[in-house]
Simulated assay, not measured.
Amino acid sequence: MADYQYNRVLLKLSGEALMGSGDFGIDGEVLGRLAEQIREVHDDGIELGIVVGGGNIFRGMSEAANGMDRAQADYMGMLATVQNALALQDAFEHAGIDTRVMSAIEMRAICETYIRRRAVRHMEKGRVVIFAAGTGNPYFTTDTAAALRACEINADCLMKATKVDGIYDKDPVTNPDAVRFDQISYREVLMRGLRVMDATATALCQENHMPIIVFDIEQPHVFRDALSGEPVGTTVIEEEDEQ
Rank of each mutant, 00 (worst) to 15 (best):
L34E: 09
D169V: 10
G53E: 10
E230P: 06
G53T: 13
E40N: 12
R8A: 03
A119W: 05
D27R: 02
A146W: 08
D225G: 06
R117S: 14
R127H: 12
H122N: 11
F181T: 01
Q83P: 04
M107Q: 06
D225C: 10
M1E: 13
T174H: 15
K160H: 00
V129M: 09
G45W: 14
G53R: 11
V51L: 08
K125L: 09
T135A: 02
D143F: 08
I57P: 01
R39F: 10
V30E: 08
F92G: 03
M210N: 00
V189N: 01
E218F: 15
V214R: 00
E40W: 11
P138Q: 01
C111E: 03
I105T: 01
M61K: 15
D156L: 09
R8H: 03
V232I: 15
F131N: 05
A203D: 08
S21C: 06
G233M: 07
M61Y: 13
T81P: 04
N154Y: 07
D198I: 01
E40G: 07
Y75R: 14
I167P: 00
D143A: 06
A155L: 05
D177K: 12
E112T: 14
Y168C: 09
Y75C: 08
R118L: 13
I167W: 00
M68I: 15
L79R: 11
G20A: 10
D241E: 11
V9P: 01
M191V: 06
E207L: 08
L204H: 03
R149G: 05
A2P: 03
T162V: 03
I184A: 00
E93T: 13
A150V: 07
I167F: 02
V173S: 14
E124Y: 04
A226S: 13
G67K: 12
L86I: 10
G55A: 15
